[in-house]
Computed example of a mutant assay.
Amino acid sequence: MKRAAAALEARVRDLPQERVLITDENLPGWRIKNLYSIRFADGAKYAVDTLEAAFKEHSVTWIMSTRDPADHLRSSYNYVVKQKGGTKDFEAWQKKIGSAEGLATLISDAAAHWGERGRLLAMEDAVREGGLWGADILRASGLSEDVIAGLAPVEAANARLPDALMPYVYRINEMKLDRDLRKEVLQLLLDVYDQARAADRVIEGGPK
């Protein structure tokens, strides 16, 4: 990790830009399988300290986008069901994976370690404020409002599965289809759902 951090710092040093923003969805050790039970001191702290040591000649600010831990846990469950084909109910999965409180502790421990070097940006605030998604991160990195306003938005994407579709997803997963076919069927289900929503019709209940 020290070699990788040094190589990254050297690459950043050679860039002509005045400001460089480095982002990553997950620090080492932060994954769905342990995100709700791992301690900050048991992995991510080492990664943070290693990067800061390599970037000692730079002014480093850590930016973390946060979400309500309970909502994040539910969204993670839906993602696993969609991608992995799981059929366990949410309560059983939660007992295995950890708790929303565990994620809240991980976030607070990271924030405490960063101190003034850290910025926590709530996703709920970004949704409420509207505008360009991710603008809060760019703003925290120092970009001006004029530059942000001139950026072209990209098409929005959401991996969350609507609660009304979950019984159908479980049924599809129970069919034991191969992965590619299962994902194709799930996408077809989502397309039908989106069309029904567009016509102000909501699918209720589950398969009979």
Results as ranks from 00 to 15, higher is better:
residue 106 L to H: 04
residue 37 S to R: 09
residue 127 V to K: 13
residue 103 L to W: 09
residue 153 P to K: 03
residue 23 T to V: 14
residue 18 E to C: 01
residue 89 D to P: 01
residue 84 K to F: 00
residue 167 P to Q: 15
residue 129 E to I: 09
residue 146 D to E: 14
residue 63 I to T: 08
residue 139 R to K: 13
residue 165 L to S: 05
residue 112 A to G: 02
residue 104 A to S: 11
residue 61 T to E: 14
residue 201 R to Y: 09
residue 141 S to I: 05
residue 206 G to R: 02
residue 122 A to Y: 08
residue 122 A to W: 10
residue 135 A to W: 01
residue 60 V to L: 11
residue 110 A to I: 12
residue 49 D to N: 01
residue 53 A to R: 03
residue 145 E to A: 14
residue 24 D to W: 11
residue 179 R to H: 15
residue 33 K to R: 11
residue 206 G to W: 04
residue 183 K to W: 11
residue 184 E to K: 13
residue 48 V to G: 01
residue 142 G to Q: 12
residue 11 R to W: 15
residue 70 A to G: 04
residue 11 R to E: 12
residue 191 D to P: 03
residue 5 A to T: 03
residue 160 R to T: 13
residue 144 S to A: 10
residue 182 R to V: 14
residue 180 D to C: 06
residue 101 E to Y: 02
residue 82 K to Y: 15
residue 167 P to A: 14
residue 83 Q to A: 07
residue 82 K to V: 04
residue 181 L to T: 14
residue 80 V to R: 15
residue 117 R to V: 05
residue 129 E to F: 11
residue 87 T to S: 07
residue 163 D to Q: 15
residue 105 T to K: 15
residue 12 V to L: 11
residue 28 P to D: 02
residue 126 A to I: 09
residue 135 A to H: 05
residue 43 G to I: 00
residue 205 G to A: 07
residue 70 A to F: 06
residue 141 S to K: 05
residue 154 V to H: 08
residue 44 A to S: 10
residue 183 K to M: 14
residue 193 Y to S: 05
residue 121 L to V: 12
residue 86 G to A: 01
residue 119 R to V: 13
residue 185 V to T: 03
residue 151 L to A: 10
residue 205 G to L: 07
residue 14 D to C: 06
residue 190 L to K: 10
residue 41 A to P: 01
residue 198 A to C: 02
residue 130 G to F: 05
residue 53 A to H: 00
residue 151 L to V: 13
residue 5 A to H: 05
residue 151 L to Y: 13
residue 167 P to V: 14
residue 75 S to D: 07
residue 60 V to S: 11
residue 133 W to G: 02
residue 146 D to I: 08
residue 45 K to Y: 10
residue 127 V to T: 07
residue 77 Y to N: 06
residue 120 L to D: 05
residue 86 G to E: 06
residue 95 K to M: 01
residue 130 G to D: 00
residue 161 L to C: 09
residue 33 K to H: 10
residue 95 K to C: 02
residue 139 R to Y: 00
residue 20 V to P: 15
residue 55 F to Q: 02
residue 123 M to K: 08
residue 118 G to S: 13
residue 159 A to M: 07
residue 196 A to V: 00
residue 49 D to S: 02
residue 16 P to Y: 08
residue 158 N to R: 15
residue 204 E to L: 09
residue 196 A to G: 02
residue 64 M to D: 04
residue 172 I to Q: 02
residue 71 D to I: 00
residue 79 Y to R: 10
residue 63 I to G: 08
residue 81 V to S: 08
residue 72 H to I: 06
residue 193 Y to D: 13
residue 165 L to M: 12
residue 46 Y to I: 06
residue 81 V to A: 14
residue 33 K to T: 08
residue 139 R to T: 06
residue 11 R to F: 13
residue 146 D to L: 12
residue 117 R to S: 08
residue 17 Q to N: 09
residue 2 K to P: 03
residue 63 I to R: 11
residue 29 G to M: 02
